[in-house]
């Protein structure tokens, strides 16, 4: 067993994803405590050049092989199993993304390494990790340890600052040949969303609605408020799923990550998947009828009320 903290690197279109930098920054400080190294594991084809941007890592293990041209759960899992088994890191950090979920749970079962999911905080205590996880749609948080001191954590995006892991540098690069592959899941293509009428990532004021709106007709009230504020309307997942607003307006894990000056969360309970996408907003004001809604744990201002009562009053107050 080593004291290393390993990070699985995710990249798309030749660039490292922000979530990887978030993990790397954390890995660096954890490794300093555990007296090990922060080790980044980079899989891909023609990706050796990306290693230089992983300066926060002490070491980058690169598996550069045409088999990893694109992400595949089965191929990644097959290649990573021997790496994690042989290096025995004390902790493996994986982003809680679609890809990360597949790989982390796959590694956990293959290597009988415990897995702590939906992590929002990781600390080292006596050389072994302690992980804080979100459960029950964010209504409960659990603090867990790995029974034998080692394990994997999938980390919710936005839990750690990306800046701490984004520095350039010259980590030791270790090229490793893939010892196994698994072609049973084959990447075909990437579908990108059509550009929407509004780019919510560039708006400085977002009026965001969730399930609490109740009826599609009530969107008019939200539009009126957004207009009065000079902002745009965004939403949580259920509103986009219902087709009431286009996908391009969806904030969160499967939608867009936004950092507006003001984020008004109306009738949004604040599931972890949503919080991922908006917790970076400068000012968050939440209105929800459930006093225990998790949205209030990230909001700067909160009000327990029915949005359908507050919104018309606010619009009127703003002269809308």
């Amino acid at each position: 067993m080593s004291a290393d903290v390993m990070v699985l690197v995710e990249h798309r279109d030749g660039a490292i994803l922000d979530t990887t930098f978030e993990l790397l920054g954390k890995a660096k400080s954890l490794a300093a405590e555990s007296k090990g190294e922060a080790v980044a594991v980079l899989l891909g084809s023609g990706v050796a050049g990306l290693a230089g941007s992983l300066g926060a890592a002490a070491r980058v293990i690169v598996i550069d092989d045409p088999a990893f041209e694109a992400f595949s759960p089965s191929a990644y899992q097959a290649a990573l199993v021997p790496v994690v088994r042989d290096r025995e890191p004390t902790l493996v950090l994986v982003a809680n993304s679609g890809a990360g979920m597949d790989v982390a749970a796959g590694l956990s079962a293959a290597l009988e390494l415990p897995l702590a999911a939906y992590a929002t905080e990781v600390t080292m205590d006596g050389g072994s990790p302690r992980v804080t996880c979100q459960l029950y749609a964010g209504k409960i948080q659990a603090t867990v340890r790995f029974e034998r001191g080692r394990g994997i954590a999938t980390v919710v995006a936005g839990s750690f600052p990306a800046e701490a892991g984004a520095g350039a540098g010259s980590p030791m690069v270790e090229a490793v040949a893939a010892t196994a592959s698994d072609g049973r899941v084959r990447f075909k293509r990437l579908h990108r969303p059509e550009a929407g009428d509004v780019d919510i990532t560039r708006e400085s004021v977002l009026v965001s609605v969730g399930r609490g709106i109740g009826d599609q007709d009530n969107l008019e009230l939200i539009e009126a408020l957004a207009k009065a504020l000079g902002g745009a309307v965004s939403s949580s997942r259920p509103i986009a799923d219902a087709g009431w607003l286009p996908r391009t307006r969806q904030v969160g894990k499967s939608g867009l990550k936004v950092k507006p000056k003001v984020y008004l969360a109306l009738g949004i309970s604040g599931a972890p998947e949503h919080l991922e996408g908006m917790r970076g907003a400068e000012l968050i004001i939440a209105v929800n009828s459930d006093a225990r809604a998790p949205i209030f744990s990230v909001a700067h201002y909160g009000a327990v009320a029915d949005l359908l009562d507050v919104v018309p009053a606010l619009t009127a107050r703003l002269g809308g």
Partner: peptide, 16 residues
């Protein structure tokens, strides 16, 4: 393979 040390209801509005 996990030991749960503690569970808690996050303090709602702790920051709000």
């Amino acid at each position: 393979g996990l030991t749960i040390e503690a569970m808690a209801v996050p303090e709602s509005g702790a920051t709000a």
